[in-house]
């Protein structure tokens, strides 16, 4: 598949990756993406229509555990590495635009331009 590596594409990927990039980074990344795509382009010539993808490296199935409660960490230890905490919770800048409690299936996707207040 022929892909044109545009500034927009790389900016989109950087946003999805949650990595801020400068104009200089962008230039370098566009060139890197072009080279990587050329490098992996060789795969496209290979016919894999009838090949089952190899998704796992583990050879077993049904590796599990009993439903048994084990010791948790104490709160001090849980929060010990936190860049910001109040001794009870991890603290982050106020989450705006998402209402409360976005559980799984309900993540609040941040606005693409980073202006989350706009949501």
């Amino acid at each position: 598949m022929a892909i044109e590596v545009t500034d927009d594409l790389v900016c989109h990927i950087a946003r999805l990756s949650r990595i801020a990039i400068s104009q200089d980074d962008l230039k370098e990344l566009v060139s890197h993406f072009e080279r990587i795509l050329a490098f992996v382009g060789e795969l496209q010539s290979l016919d894999t229509r009838d090949v089952e993808p190899s998704m796992f490296s583990v050879e077993s199935t049904n590796v599990d555990r009993e439903d048994i409660v084990c010791a948790s960490l104490g709160r001090t230890e849980s929060l010990a590495n936190a860049p910001e905490s109040n001794g009870t919770f991890f603290v982050v800048p106020r989450i705006v635009g998402g209402g409360s409690e976005a559980g799984p299936g309900a993540p609040v996707q941040m606005e693409e331009d980073g202006a989350e207040g706009a949501a």
Partner: peptide
């Protein structure tokens, strides 16, 4: 995520 009352921050309980 819990929204702090009087502060411009949110709190996370895991």
């Amino acid at each position: 995520n819990i929204h702090a009352e009087a502060r411009p921050e949110s709190w996370v309980d895991l």
